[in-house]
C-alpha cells in the first residue's frame, strides 16, 4: 500500500488506541484526530476484517505500532518468528513509531499475557540492550521502549528506573515512550515520589506519551496499590503529571489507551480532545511568559 504519512509525519497531537469496537464509527465519522495506535499482536492473523479495517483507517490517519509480546526483558533470546511477524507488519502498514515494553511476558515456551517486571542491574541492562540492538537491526529502525507499571520491585536493583531507561537509551540508541499512568502506578506502588521520578526521567529520549486509566486496590497492610487497568477515564493525578511532562517535553504525540470496558467512540474521542487541549495550551508557555515578564 502507499501510505500518505511517512514516519516523519507523526504529529504532536493526541491519538487513540484503535479497537475493533470502534472501526465503523471511525470510518463513518472520520474524526479529526492525530493518529491511531494498534497492538501489533492483534494484527498477526493471516487475514480478515482486522486487516481490512486497519488498511482503510491507515489510508486516512498516521499509525503507531505497539508491541506487547516481544518479551524484551526476558533473559532468553528473542523469538525470531515474532521479529519476522513484526517486520512484516511494519512493512505492510508503515507506522510512524514502533514501541515495546521494558518487561517480559514469555518464558519456557509459555506466553503469560502480562507485562512482568525486570530487575535493574548491570546484567539485565546488558541483556535488554542486546535485545534492543537485535530488534532495531532486524526491523531497520529505531524503537521506543516504554517505562513499566509495576507492583513489586527487586531487592537486587542497582539503578533507579529512570536512570536504567536512560542508560538503555544511551547505549542502544532506542527512544523512550513515557507512559504517565505507569509513572503514577509504579510510584504509588513503590512509594516513589512521582515528581522526582519525572524530574529524573531522561526526557531527552522521549518521543511519545501514553495516558490511561487505572484501578485502585490495597495491599495486605492497607496501603494503596494502583492497577494499570486501562478500563476507565484518565485520573486527575495523571493529567497533572502529564501537564508537568509536556511542560518539559513540549508538544509530544500522546496516546489515550483504553482496552477494557470500552466506551462508545465519542467518549474516547473526548479524552483525546482533552489531551490535545493540554498540548495546544501547555501551562509551561504561560509559566515562561510570566517568568519573562517578571
Amino acid at each position: 500500500m502507499s501510505a500518505p504519512f511517512s514516519h516523519r509525519d507523526i504529529p504532536a497531537r493526541a491519538g487513540v488506541g484503535l479497537k475493533a469496537h470502534h472501526y465503523r464509527a471511525i470510518l463513518e465519522s472520520r474524526p479529526d484526530i492525530g493518529f491511531f495506535e494498534v497492538h501489533a499482536e492483534n494484527y498477526m492473523g493471516a487475514g480478515g476484517p482486522p486487516h481490512r479495517y486497519l488498511t482503510e483507517i491507515r489510508s486516512h490517519y498516521p499509525l503507531c505500532l505497539h508491541g506487547v509480546g516481544l518479551s524484551i526483558g526476558a533473559d532468553a533470546p528473542l523469538d525470531p518468528q515474532h521479529l519476522r511477524r513484526l517486520a512484516e507488519l511494519l512493512c505492510r502498514y508503515e507506522p510512524a513509531l514502533f514501541s515495546e515494553h521494558l518487561a517480559w511476558s514469555s518464558h519456557g515456551g509459555h506466553f503469560f499475557n502480562d507485562l512482568l517486571p525486570v530487575p535493574y542491574t548491570k546484567a539485565t541492562l546488558y541483556r535488554v540492550c542486546e535485545h534492543i540492538d537485535q530488534v532495531q537491526q532486524r526491523l531497520g529502525r529505531q524503537m521506543l521502549l516504554e517505562n513499566p507499571s509495576t507492583y513489586l520491585t527487586f531487592a537486587a536493583n542497582s539503578y533507579e528506573e529512570g536512570e536504567f531507561l536512560g542508560e538503555i537509551a544511551r547505549r542502544s540508541g532506542c527512544a523512550l515512550l513515557l507512559d504517565v499512568n505507569n509513572v503514577l502506578v509504579a510510584c504509588t506502588n513503590q512509594q516513589w515520589d512521582p515528581l522526582r521520578y519525572l524530574d529524573r526521567f531522561p526526557m531527552a529520549h522521549v518521543r511519545q506519551i501514553h495516558l490511561a486509566g487505572h484501578a485502585r486496590d490495597v495491599d495486605a497492610r492497607g496501603r494503596t496499590v494502583l492497577i494499570d487497568s486501562h478500563d476507565r477515564p484518565i485520573d486527575v493525578a495523571v493529567w497533572e503529571l502529564y501537564s508537568r511532562a509536556i511542560a518539559v517535553l513540549g508538544p509530544t504525540p500522546t496516546l489515550i489507551e483504553w482496552d477494557q470496558n470500552l466506551p462508545e467512540w465519542p467518549a474516547l474521542h473526548a479524552e483525546a480532545a482533552r489531551a490535545e487541549a493540554h498540548l495546544l495550551a501547555p501551562p509551561h508557555r504561560k509559566a515562561c511568559r510570566h517568568a519573562a515578564l517578571g
Binding site: 512482568l116 517486571p117 507492583y151 513489586l152 520491585t153 527487586f154 513503590q190 495491599d219 495486605a220 496499590v225
Partner: peptide, 29 residues
C-alpha cells in the same frame, strides 16, 4: 525471593496481582 514491596519485604498480595492479571486476561480472551 528478592521480589519485594516498598518496605523491602516480600509481599504475597502484590505478587498475586501478577498472577491475577495472567489468569483474568486469558479468561477475558
Amino acid at each position: 525471593s528478592g521480589c519485594i514491596g516498598p518496605d523491602g519485604a516480600p509481599d504475597a498480595k502484590r505478587f498475586a496481582i501478577y498472577r491475577n492479571n495472567v489468569a483474568s486476561s486469558l479468561i477475558d480472551c
